[in-house]
Amino acid sequence: MTSKSNSNALNNFPRRHLLTCEGLSANEINFLLDLADKAADHIRRNGKKRDVLAGRTLINLFFESSTRTQASFEMAGKRLSADVMNMNVATSSVNKGETLIDTAVTLNAMRPDMIVVRHHAAGAVELLSQKVDCSVINAGDGAHQHPTQALLDALTIRRAKGRVAGLTVAICGDILHSRVARSNINVLNALGARVRLIAPSTLLPSSPDRLGGEVFTDMWKGLEGVDVVMMLRLQRERMEASYVPSSREFFHFFGLDQEKLARAKPDALVMHPGPMNRGVEIASTVADDTRSVIREQVEMGVAVRMAVLEALSAHLPSFEDAA
């Protein structure tokens, strides 16, 4: 039997998997954000956990270690009464396409309802989704996509600003290696925001202007009059590979401090997907500023993941009555 909310989800979010933000419509995104908004309010009101996913099995399959994303999905699943299983696959033992598929086939044989996957290789989650019968949620694949991060960012902005359309959002830092940036570019563009990409040329992918944002290599100029400043994490190994000379120089020219932030609108939001490198891409005084919504992002993370799980669950086959 299909419930009313199920048919609503079937119509408004007609997808079995959430693999990428590319191609998501404003309607689909807003549908998820509306659901997440309700979930967030429900949690804030100290509401009881719901039974949307009661009897369903959710596997967290993380080929790349993660604390916060995995915990967030686990929390989201449990708040919807799913049975959650965490599988941390050591990257060393499973790192070839063939074994990834073998893993997928093995897991599929256990008949889970949903799998949340993070993998270090771009496209790996989509590959896995082709080999299983359940719903697959991309929790990050290489430098490709991290859809729930972009959705939680959009929700955070929408709640703080009342809208996303028409806002100017600057995404700053290691765009070349960032799945968060790519997903955000898709979502923000779909919702009608103006996107700016700020990074040194060495941390921009080729043809950056074709990604859907205006490109700046000067952060002072790039932040001029923006409504939202979205910082990205800079991995230490980027220094060793000579993408940037040092964390000191990076902070000087591309780290968000009060001086650069002063170029943005006075009420600009400061965001960061975490974990932060204080003193590398963001100054502590900014991270802990009243304009910072970094903690809200974490909170919205659980709500958005609940919304995604709920929307996808509408596509699961309904239960047979117990014999």
């Binding site: 220094m239 060793e240 000579s242 940037v244 000379p245 040092s246 000191r248 120089e249 000087h252 020219f253």
Partner: peptide, 14 residues
């Protein structure tokens, strides 16, 4: 490059 070794770039901006 640091130490003229041709491996890691220096702090060009600073």
């Amino acid at each position: 490059t640091k130490g003229l070794k041709g491996e890691e770039m220096t702090e060009i901006g600073l």
